[in-house]
């Protein structure tokens, strides 16, 4: 049966050839998985979080595996915005894929400055604002755990750039809907949810926390039900599109997020398990659509909501 499926989606003014993106911090600056597939196959390439100044990140150990999950405390290690613009971003123009840069800062002004500088870089098509990193004292969750500060970061970034702005939300809050609405109100063009969940592990041989940073962010299949629930809750409370992420390994996982209301999805930890995870997810989505006679991926967006209502 010949059935051409339209996988294109629109995300805050960006047109993506399919709904599958990389999750920031899991794909470096686009080159790491080049031997396994071309970034051109992706809907969008979201690169590592960038700050104004270079950051060394946290001491090691930075990773601990947990059941069906991964705790990390990288601490936003990155070469700083100038080096990223000079060295890391220009080569990305060779791929036919929209590049989205994740940004973080210690102060409102730093978020604005990083946004302004990246906006002058032609390869950058959107900014994802990290107001949710659990592993740094400032600049991360501090902003993202209160609706007023989260909204202020988004206002500052919006005032500094003409690019679409995606707010990446933290799940470590009491009311995710309140956060989503606050950043929408502040002008966010789309939302990414979720960032990692704050967690920890103890090494019982050493009788001490397994991560040097003590706590870290939990990702992987272990967090998927929580991520899905948050996408579900937010989907009908905002008008802007959502990027769903958290433990996606397969096309089926991605479809759950889309049916909960996500416009696009992002793959993070899944890439570490399967270096072709992103393309396997795209293939899986396409196969499902072909089998079910879905002509446009948009038909599936939020369909679980509609079916739950009826």
């Amino acid at each position: 049966m010949e059935n051409k499926v339209d996988l294109t989606v629109e995300l805050g003014g960006l047109k993506l050839k399919n709904p599958v993106m990389t999750a920031s911090g899991t794909f470096a600056f686009g080159e790491a998985y080049e031997d396994f597939f071309s970034p051109a196959e992706l809907g969008a390439l979201v690169v590592k979080g960038v700050t104004l100044e270079p950051r060394q990140g946290n001491p090691g150990p930075r990773l601990v595996e947990t059941p069906a999950g991964l705790l990390n405390a990288i601490g936003l290690e990155n070469p700083g915005v100038e080096e990223v613009i000079r060295t890391y971003l220009p080569p990305l123009s060779r791929y036919d894929v929209p590049v989205i840069v994740n940004i973080a800062g210690n102060t409102y002004a730093e978020y604005g400055e990083v946004a302004a500088r990246l906006s002058k870089c032609p390869v950058v098509k959107a900014l994802e604002v990290n107001i949710s990193c659990p592993n740094v004292k400032e600049g991360g969750m501090a902003f993202g755990s209160h609706p007023d500060t989260a909204a202020e970061v988004i206002r500052v970034v919006k005032a500094s750039t003409g690019l679409p702005v995606i707010a990446k939300l933290s799940p470590n809050v009491t009311d995710i809907v309140e956060m989503a609405q606050a950043v929408e109100e502040a002008g966010a063009d789309a939302l990414s949810l979720i960032n990692t969940l704050l967690g920890m592990a103890i090494d019982i041989k050493q009788k001490r926390p397994a991560l040097a940073n003590v706590t870290g962010g939990l990702s992987g299949p272990a967090v998927k039900p929580i991520a899905l629930r948050m996408v579900w809750q937010v989907a009908r409370k905002v008008k802007i599109p959502l990027v769903g992420m958290g433990g996606i390994l397969t096309g089926e996982d991605a479809l759950e997020f889309i049916m909960a209301g996500a416009t696009a999805v992002a793959i993070g930890t899944g890439q570490f398990v399967n270096p072709r995870c992103c393309v396997d997810v795209i293939t899986g989505i396409k196969k499902y659509c072909e089998e079910k006679g879905v002509k446009n991926i948009g038909e599936l967006r939020g369909v679980a909501w509609r079916n739950a209502d009826s």
């Binding site: 911090g25 470096a28 790491a32 090691g60 930075r62 990390n72 990288i74 290690e77 890439q271 570490f272």
Partner: peptide, 16 residues
Amino acid sequence: EAVMACGVGACLGCTC
């Protein structure tokens, strides 16, 4: 030797 996740320079989990 280091604990690794990606093994290909993507995650920065093993840096020293």
